[in-house]
Amino acid sequence: MNLKKKKKSYKASNLPPGTIAYRGKKQSVATNIEIINYSKDKCTILNTGAVQEAFNFKGNEHVTWININGLNNVNDIETLGLHYKLHPLTLEDIVNTGQRPKLEEFENYMFVVFKMLFIKNDDEIHYEHLSLIVGEDYVLTFQEADGDVFDDLRERLQSAKGRIRSQGSDYLMYAILDAVVDNYFTVIEVLGDKVEDLEGLLFQSNKADDRTPGQIQQLKQEILRMRRSIYPLREVISRIEKTDFAFIEEKTHSYLRDLHDHIIQVSESIDLYREMIWSLMDMYMTIISNKMNEIMKVLTIIATIFIPLTFIAGIYGMNFKNMPELNTDNGYFILLGVMFILFIFMLIYFRRKRWL
């Protein structure tokens, strides 16, 4: 694993407040606008690349959901913002993908920024900047590119399942937030599987190698990024639930309270896995330390066995003429026998002490 850190470049934009400048990585995404206009008895779906086609649905006594993909096309977003009388600071935040989750209330709409997380390529966690604007009879959502978690919601709108077609724009806002939060549980499940797999790898110490610390560090960074993306949404949903905004009906507040409970559950799971990943690093260091202790123990035992043998060999390796044993018949074999007996005795002693 190449852990060489890429050099980052930091550049201050220093633009006037309200300047609409895209700040993201997807610079070549074409504008794709999905319009869902519905009432209790009818649902119309339109996909287009022309932002002007969204103007015809305003004020038609139906609820309209307009989903815009492609934040890099700031001219289209500015055109739509002018039609719906969105504040310049709102438009600035829509195209700034570095915004943390937040809630802002204006005279004729409410603006929510949050992160949409979903799984791509089996276990890769994808992060999407999502902005939501809810007005009296419309909901606008803005995201960087194609791919979201709203397929079930679209199917419910088309087939008139549940109560969504008979509710207003405030319930549609709740349904969108609920779809995002429900998908957090799927992401958390994938994250939990990664943590548990790594934990199992560590317990099988023969499979842990030099790549393990990098895997732990990568997983820790993933958890921290997820925490930064999800944690602030607790406060956002709590504020929406407590607000007395004119477009949010009283019966919708009970759904928002349930949504708040869900996001707290997600946050607690993230904190749990955060603690687990820290303990995995401690566990890895403990395993490495134990391995080192085992190696040092073996080397110490070997050195201890050979100390007396080396001592005897050293004595009889001295070049003195008056050493009585030098002229002893079979002295060489007697000395080897004594050394062998010492060797066996020390092995038995270490075995009884359970050092071997």
Rank of each mutant, 00 (worst) to 15 (best):
T304E: 10
E294L: 00
T300A: 10
V112Q: 02
V113L: 15
T304W: 06
S267E: 01
Y316K: 11
E78S: 14
L103V: 11
M116N: 06
V51D: 01
Y138G: 01
E155K: 15
Y255D: 01
T64P: 03
M110T: 10
M116R: 06
Y332P: 05
E92R: 09
P101E: 02
K40S: 14
V112A: 01
Y184G: 00
K194F: 03
K26V: 06
E249L: 12
F203E: 00
K120Y: 07
G200K: 14
S166V: 15
A313K: 00
I270T: 10
Y138A: 01
G317C: 09
I248S: 00
F118T: 09
F345Y: 11
N327Q: 13
A50M: 11
T79Q: 12
M281Y: 14
E222F: 09
I301P: 08
R211D: 12
G317N: 04
R257Q: 03
H260Y: 15
G162Q: 03
W65V: 13
F203N: 01
T141L: 08
F350V: 13
I295V: 15
T90S: 11
I237C: 07
K26Y: 07
K207V: 00
V190E: 03
Y255W: 02
K58V: 04
L280Q: 07
I94W: 00
M281S: 12
N327T: 15
K7T: 14
K321A: 05
N293M: 01
E155R: 15
D244W: 07
D193S: 09
Q221R: 15
I119K: 03
V338Y: 07
I305S: 06
S205A: 08
K251T: 13
K25C: 02
D137G: 05
N14C: 05
G331I: 11
I35P: 06
K251D: 12
Y84M: 08
Y255V: 07
W65H: 11
Y109V: 04
E189D: 11
R100Q: 08
E136N: 12
L80M: 08
L80K: 00
E104K: 14
F57P: 04
I230Q: 14
P16W: 06
I307W: 10
L130R: 02
V63A: 02
S269L: 13
S289Q: 12
I119P: 03
Q217F: 15
Y84T: 08
I341P: 07
I344H: 02
D41Q: 14
G314R: 00
L233I: 15
I36S: 01
E222G: 05
T328K: 03
E325K: 09
L272I: 15
I248C: 00
I68Y: 14
R100V: 05
L280I: 09
Q99I: 09
M116V: 13
L46K: 08
N206Y: 10
Q218E: 04
E196Y: 10
F333M: 10
Y84D: 03
E275M: 12
K242Y: 04
Y109R: 04
N108F: 07
L86C: 09
G162V: 11
Y22R: 07
D209E: 08
N319H: 07
E196T: 13
F340E: 00
D210L: 15
G162N: 04
L117N: 06
D209K: 14
F311E: 05
L157N: 02
D148S: 03
F320V: 10
T90G: 03
D170I: 15
V187W: 07
R227Y: 09
G168I: 13
L103R: 09
L256S: 01
E235V: 05
